[in-house]
Design a protein around this nucleic acid. Structure first.
Lengths: 107, 107
DNA sequence: TATCTTAATCGTAATATTGCAATATTACAA
DNA sequence: TTGTAATATTGCAATATTACGATTAAGATA
């Protein structure tokens, strides 16, 4: 039915899935990489850099924002994003914990 | 148009996105966790453990398989999955490198 | 061989995602 | 206030994903 049955899974499983979803499109990976490379975090040229249309970029940015991974000013001309350090480290830790708990103990 | 323009992005960006896609559903996260916990890697009770229907589990398993993250015997009764250690470490390294390269140097 | 068990596949429905054109909004500058 | 430059929103089309009932396939076992 196209709907994920999230209620079947625990909080941490859903958290990993939600975070992974953000990274599950190369445009969002590229956007995060680009933003992180900018010294001054004025990211008005994302459309040129990435090569997708402005609405599409805006949509992807919104997905990243919704996950809490960006911070800064989002309104009007004084636009200034950057990575939300705290949330980013949280996600990193989440993945780290997930990978750490998977042991490959057979075959 | 519903199709990801993967050609716009480099190999590593697409690789991160592909790997993240596997983890982008809590059922697949749960399946990987469960398989990794099994000593003997006979995973016939996934349907009971996860709580999704048998065809749905089979579909999710196939997604994980397609990403190369499972190894073992997949045919008939002598079914025996486990995590493909080599590929798993590759993915882990991929994420590690991605996270490592993101620096949060503004705002 | 017939039957049972279990996983894969098929078919289909519902929903989500991706992408862009058109339009709206916002902030600033002249 | 009018114009300009930039991002956001809307609406829509194409495709992908999620889920499951029904069926099929393959191996085990009586």
């Amino acid at each position: 039915m196209g709907v994920s049955k999230t209620q079947l899974f625990n909080i941490s499983q859903n958290a990993v899935a939600r975070a992974a979803k953000v990274l599950a499109h190369p445009a969002r990976v590229a956007i995060l990489q680009y933003i992180s490379r900018q010294e001054n975090c004025i990211c008005t040229d994302l459309v040129d850099v990435i090569g997708l249309s402005q609405p599409t970029i805006s949509q992807h940015l919104n997905e990243i924002k919704k996950a809490g991974l960006l911070q800064g000013t989002f309104e009007g001309k004084n636009l200034c994003y950057c990575i939300n350090r705290e949330k980013w480290e949280e996600v990193q830790e989440l993945f780290h914990a997930f990978f750490g708990k998977i042991n490959q103990n057979c075959c």
